[in-house]
Design a protein around this nucleic acid. Structure first.
Lengths: 249, 249
DNA sequence: GCAACCTCTGAGCCCGCTCTCAGCGCGCGG
DNA sequence: CCGCGCGCTGAGAGCGGGCTCAGAGGTTGC
């Protein structure tokens, strides 16, 4: 069996119920942003294509028949509503994740997302986009691997993404938003060393100007809450980064 | 058995007694509104089609043989009541939910709805449409899952949707209309974090221009009535939204 | 026509979260 | 064994999310 594993991932490719990889179309008029997004999604196992405006998005969509679309609301030509309608015309069950500026007309977003669709405000972190997209797919029951539910488990550490709840050994661990996203990244990459730069890229929004120092800080917060008094699961690899490992005994 | 689960909700798909998904036809001449409605209904597990006028509505109906129809009374070509008559010709037991302007001729509506059908006045909230439609289906005994009755239970919190009655620990909790709808949304998504935007989309009418601030306000109202003095069930997840959870002990 | 209620707006406050800075420990290389 | 630098952590400032109160406008019912 020769399933072409997407580059980089280490994770098995996301596949649909028929075994073919999940397809996503990224639509944004900023080519840099589109590139970053498509890179991250490819890394996650998606088959990705991009478009820069509404018209070419539709053309691509007709050809690709994507399972999901990441769609900037502000496009040079069309408006989000029209694109959405056309997309649903091409494929009624397509999942759409909107990208929108924070103070952009939120009222218009309200309503667009009324179905199963979702949105993320700029500036966003890659982890957030990836997680939302996974959420959409899971709820749509499209991906094989995701059908077991929104649970993430490493050792006795369990994360329920929908309830935003984390427990270790059955005990509830309360986390802030950033702590939660950092831990999610670690849990989705167990036993793999992640550099501070990688972490910064995925957990913090792309326009974050600060130093990699915050990563250390948040790792220390996580340790206090997750490892507190217990056998540590978060390990420092000096000069390389951090790893999350289940306790081996 | 491989029934393709329609997108949405993590709720089981709405199915008819023979196991196939419930079918609904949405008829409205405003394509944006039709899109929003069909999105929401698909999310709820319906198989949806749309039409923009009376003639194509009939054509679609003959093909789809829908279990229910969401029907704007004001159509460009025919009037809603003529469509209704024809629909009943296609399928006598079809459920119809009318959409109508507030000051429309209420007496005519009243006459129609005597037959078991229902109506909602514009502007409406999606939760309202969805709930009414569920009510129709339940009364018609068409959906499998709904046969157990209009009761919604989370912990010691119980909602009777038809009687519009809520009790916590046996004590009656009196709620205003908006409070009721907000709580219903929360109760239909227990243990799942809902963002303020999501809540706004579903509980407030689609033309609501205001800020997400109202959601906070109504959450605080709900807390005073539902959580008053008791172990809290409504929880804030900072930067993410709100969750309703049964008290864990 | 009045009273009660409901809904929403705006302002102000509080507090949790995020991040900066600084100092210290400790591992590692010399 | 010493010194440097990476990593850890405590303190604290600033910010912004979220809560509450007060009140205006609208609607319903008497």
């Amino acid at each position: 069996m020769n399933t072409p594993r997407p580059r980089g991932s280490g994770r098995p490719a996301l596949t649909r119920t028929d075994g073919t990889p999940l397809r996503v179309l990224v639509v944004d008029d900023d080519p840099d942003l589109a590139e970053v997004l498509s890179g991250a999604l490819r890394y996650e196992g998606w088959e990705v294509r991009t478009a820069g405006d509404g018209v070419s998005a539709l053309a691509e969509a007709r050809e690709l028949l994507p399972d999901a679309v990441v769609l900037d609301v502000m496009l040079p030509d069309t408006d989000g509503f029209a694109v959405l309608r056309s997309l649903h015309g091409v494929r009624p069950d397509v999942c759409v994740l909107f990208l929108t500026a924070r103070d952009a007309v939120e009222d218009r977003i309200a309503g667009i997302t009324a179905g199963g669709d979702d949105y993320v405000t700029k500036p966003f972190s890659l982890e957030e986009v990836v997680a939302r997209l996974r959420g959409l797919l899971r709820r749509a029951g499209m991906a094989r691997q995701l059908e077991d539910g929104p649970r993430l488990t490493v050792g006795d550490l369990v994360m329920d993404e929908e309830a935003r709840e984390v427990t270790r050994g059955g005990e509830l661990v309360e986390l802030s938003r950033t702590e939660f996203e950092l831990l999610r990244l670690l849990m989705r990459n167990p036993r793999r060393v992640l550099s501070k730069a990688q972490i910064l890229d995925r957990v913090w929004s792309y326009d974050f100007g600060g130093q990699a120092h915050v990563v250390e800080l948040y790792i220390s917060y996580l340790r206090k809450k997750v490892d507190a008094g217990r056998e540590p699961m978060i390990h420092t690899v000096r000069g390389a980064g951090y790893v999350l490992k289940p306790v081996t005994r």
